[in-house]
Design a binder for these strands. Structure first.
Lengths: 239, 239
DNA sequence: AATATCATGTTTGTATACAAAAAAGATTGC
DNA sequence: GCAATCTTTTTTGTATACAAACATGATATT
């Protein structure tokens, strides 16, 4: 039969094809988002288009498109005729975000208790014990990683992509604050304990309890972030 | 020697300068969003950049930025190397959106019962009776307008701008489906009755009850939209 | 010297030009 | 006559060029 394999290596000369290949301007969006979320671009930093474009190895046009995209996510703010800045990390805004995230996570917990299958829960349990190990060794970065994964997996178990997208978008704001939260051992232990209860509620598919636990867990996290933000603010004022 | 009046009437030929003047590309975002939400640009319509730019009286660059912005809101979908299309109106997606909206409105109701002042509630009551009047006269468009305003005002009373933003973004999807919902008198009467209870719960600041009512109200609305969507789908298949 | 006005430079906003990819159409081989 | 490939055309993606707005620094006048 015919078929001469029409699509073997159609673009061998493309420089970026080695790694990216078919993702194009979305790369810029992800790169810029990472810079902001990881704090490399601090809150209120002016986004100079020429400089940033050069840094990301692209031109102003795709960068501006990425900026507009992230503006809709709330990570950057657009100033008419004055460009864009990284969205400020205001305590007031943080409170708002946490309240909404609380509702979204509570919903996810409820849905997850209904929809998760046993394999899902086994995966989450595995993540939980990884997290415990890193907690025991005091490895904060690794702990955070598994912590995030657990919450993400619960979110995924809810089986609602729209919910997941909203969660991700709002959670990006929280992630930005994470790097400045100085976790005391006491608080840390408490958070870990809460996670134990969360896993337990999920295991028993106790949706009502899981909702309450997730809400409380988030409220406690808010306290941490607020303390860190206030300390940060004071330091800035004293400067 | 000074000055030959360099900037007198720099753009006398600019057509749009008469009205807009200082709002710039955000105009394009709003225009495009309206076109999509009002159904002028039907779901799955390919967004031809040249044509659309001409239609909106601008160039491709600002239009593309607007498209990226709306992509983040979920109103358009980006196809790599193939441009963008108006996001399809899938029943599955609608279900998801309504579930999340339910959680957001419930949260808003709870917060509104705590934070609203008496003037706020009086305003909402006024809107409610306007809505009743239009319902009595069978004026659907006007009814929808006041209906939307009531829900928006409750949202505002929650005093959480982040919550409001998330709500607006998701609600845009629902608005798109509205124009095809063929409301029977029976259903319509039921929705109006529910609104009466909602107002009552708010008046008595019964947060728990208001939450439940808003969730139910939304669930009923979902049923309507789903029926309309299914009918629409069947019509398309039969076509 | 202080302030106001002007001049310069930088940055954003928009339009256009160019390149790569996809779609549509024509041509050739079977 | 049909199908597959090649060509042409359209459309997207990116870069650049130009114009308006903003910021900044200098000059002049009181």
């Amino acid at each position: 039969m015919p078929d001469v394999m029409p699509d073997t290596l159609p673009n061998p000369s493309n420089v970026t094809s080695l790694i990216d290949r078919r993702l194009l301007h979305e790369t810029v969006i992800d790169q810029l988002r990472d810079l902001i979320v990881q704090g490399e671009l601090a809150p209120e930093t002016k986004l100079n288009e020429r400089v940033l474009a050069e840094r990301l190895g692209t031109s102003r046009t795709p960068l501006r498109e990425a900026i507009k995209f992230l503006a809709s996510e709330g990570l950057v703010e657009l100033l008419p005729n004055r460009g864009a800045v990284v969205a400020p990390l205001k305590p007031e805004k943080m409170k708002e975000v946490f309240v909404v995230l609380g509702a979204l996570e509570a919903l996810a917990g409820e849905l997850a208790c209904r929809n998760a299958n046993e394999d899902d829960i086994a995966d989450i349990r595995a993540l939980h014990f990884h997290m415990l190990a890193h907690h025991a060794r005091g490895e904060l970065a690794q702990y955070f990683k598994y912590n995030q994964q657990i919450h993400s997996r619960i979110m995924d178990c809810a089986g609602n992509a729209t919910l997941t997208a909203s969660y991700r978008s709002l959670n990006a704001h929280v992630k930005r604050a994470r790097y400045l939260a100085n976790l005391s051992r006491e608080r840390w232990d408490k958070a870990v304990h809460e996670h134990g209860e969360i896993l337990d509620a999920l295991t028993h598919r106790d949706g009502v309890r899981l909702q309450a636990l997730l809400r409380d867990h988030l409220a406690n996290k808010l306290v941490l972030v607020m303390e860190a933000l206030n300390k940060n603010n004071k330091a800035e004022i004293a400067r």
